[in-house]
């Protein structure tokens, strides 16, 4: 169960990192230029789809763990201010921000 949940959480984290780094209001608030492309629908699908896979492969237990992990990681990613983010979330955010600016 755990490897599937970890892999799904990693994919969701990357997608959330993209959503955070390209979020229009967040960028406006921090005086950053608007990103050229966002693909919000696809990013949200990439965030949530791993949950469906976890539910099928790892059952309800895995789904709850993934959901809890995504909630906490999402909060951590969103809390990190642009350009000051550190760790994995920061790396993902910096990479995606540079890609989309």
């Amino acid at each position: 169960m755990l490897p599937v949940v970890l892999a799904a959480t990693a994919i969701s984290t990357a997608a959330l990192g993209h959503l955070a780094s390209t979020d229009p209001k967040r960028r406006r608030v921090f005086h950053l230029p608007a990103p050229r492309r966002r693909h919000a629908g696809a990013a949200w699908a990439a965030t949530l789809a791993p949950g469906a896979i976890v539910a099928v492969v790892s059952g309800a237990g895995g789904l709850f763990v993934w959901l809890g992990a995504v909630s906490v990681i999402g909060w951590a990613l969103a809390s990190a201010r642009p350009r000051r983010a550190t760790g994995l979330g920061g790396m993902v955010e910096r990479f995606l921000t540079q890609t989309h600016e």
Binding site: A20, D23, K25, V29, F30, W75, A78, S79, A80, R81
Partner: peptide, 22 residues
């Protein structure tokens, strides 16, 4: 507001951002 981090400056709105985000 799901990705709006706490605004800098330690203003009232910063405290609100912090609470709302979490």
């Amino acid at each position: 507001d799901l990705f709006v981090a706490e605004r800098p400056g330690w203003r009232l709105v910063s405290a609100r951002d912090r609470h709302v985000l979490a």
